[in-house]
Every structure is written in structure tokens, then in C-alpha cells.
């Protein structure tokens, strides 16, 4: 039953954003909101890509610089940057990106699998073709899941 439903409206929305000059995408359902970079309270003894804590209307959440986390660029955060608040399975977390591009509608089967070349991270869900360029679809849960594991190791 549920499968049929999905067949009928298998069009989903994706948010495209830029990290450095690279284009990335995320399922819109995993995005709670997009904000301008907030003031953060630094967290001592944390990974360098963790910017700090912010107060999102009473909720304390961590802001992570995705450009640093994914080893793309190392630049400072400017007011032109944006912060995506990711709505993960059991928590919220903010990710700094260079800019938001747009929201697109896409059929699920238009997503191609990630080429298996042993270099891509496990946090990628697939590849989307958008206006003749390829962009990588990120699995937000997996991407942030790896944070504590890395630190523990």
C-alpha cells in the first residue's frame, strides 16, 4: 500500500547548496530551517570544525562548519554564508555552508548511485544531475553520526 503511494508521488524536494565551488544536495525533509550565521559560544577541546553552540529559540545546538568538516575550504565564516539546521533522527545540528542555491523537485529514480571508487565517504546517498553539472546528495544522519566516532578513535 505504502509503496504504491510512493510510486504515485515519488517526486521529492531537494535543497542545493555550495561548499567552496562544489555543489551539494540534501533532502528538504532533513532541513528544519536555514538561518544566517548566528553568534556562537565556542566549545573548548572540540574538533576544529565545530564552531560552537547556538541558541535556537531556547534549544542549544552545535554549529559545525561543513566546509572544514568535509575538507573543502578553510575560510572564515562571513555574514554571506548560511547555516542549515539539519533535522536529524533525534537531534538538531547546524551546518555552515557557503551559500544556498535553490530547491529543486526531482523524481526519486533520477538519483544515481554513488560510483564505487572506494574514495567517496559513506555519508553520500547518491548523485544528482542538475543543469548539466553533477551534485552529491548528502545523507545528513550519516554525516553527523561519524562525528563522535571520529573523536573517540
Amino acid at each position: 500500500m505504502f509503496d504504491e503511494k510512493k510510486e504515485v508521488n515519488n517526486i521529492e524536494k531537494y535543497l542545493l547548496f555550495e561548499l567552496g565551488k562544489e555543489l551539494y544536495a540534501i533532502e528538504l525533509l532533513e532541513v528544519k530551517e536555514v538561518i544566517t550565521p548566528p553568534e556562537t559560544t565556542p566549545i573548548p577541546k572540540c574538533q576544529p570544525y565545530v564552531c560552537g553552540l547556538m541558541n535556537l529559540r531556547g534549544l542549544v545546538l552545535t554549529i559545525v562548519d561543513l566546509r572544514k568538516k568535509l575538507n573543502i575550504t578553510q575560510g572564515p565564516i562571513t555574514p554571506e554564508n548560511a547555516v542549515i539546521i539539519f533535522d536529524l533522527k533525534n537531534r538538531l545540528v547546524g551546518g555552515v555552508v557557503d551559500s544556498i542555491v535553490k530547491v529543486i523537485n526531482l523524481k526519486k529514480d533520477a538519483i544515481k548511485p554513488v560510483p564505487d571508487d572506494n574514495t567517496t565517504g559513506h555519508h553520500l546517498k547518491g548523485v544528482i544531475e542538475h543543469e548539466n553539472t553533477l551534485c552529491l546528495l548528502i545523507d545528513a544522519n550519516k554525516m553527523f553520526e561519524s562525528v563522535p566516532q571520529k573523536k573517540a578513535a
Binding site: 573548548p44 577541546k45 572540540c46 547556538m54 531556547g58 542549544v60 552545535t62 573523536k151
Partner: peptide, 27 residues
């Protein structure tokens, strides 16, 4: 007291987080 965020968990000594009266978060 608000629970520590996942990113702060690995740092020993952070009991939790809170929001100060000026609205900024604190450890």
C-alpha cells in the same frame, strides 16, 4: 540544564549546556 550536544559529549567535563539570561548559550 540542557543535555550536552553530541559534539560536546566527547569532551570530558562538560555536564550540560544552558542558556544565559542574555540569550547566549553556555557550557
Amino acid at each position: 540544564v540542557k543535555p550536552p550536544t553530541t559534539e560536546t559529549l566527547s569532551t570530558k567535563g562538560i555536564m550540560g549546556t544552558t542558556i544565559l539570561s542574555n540569550g547566549s548559550p553556555a557550557l
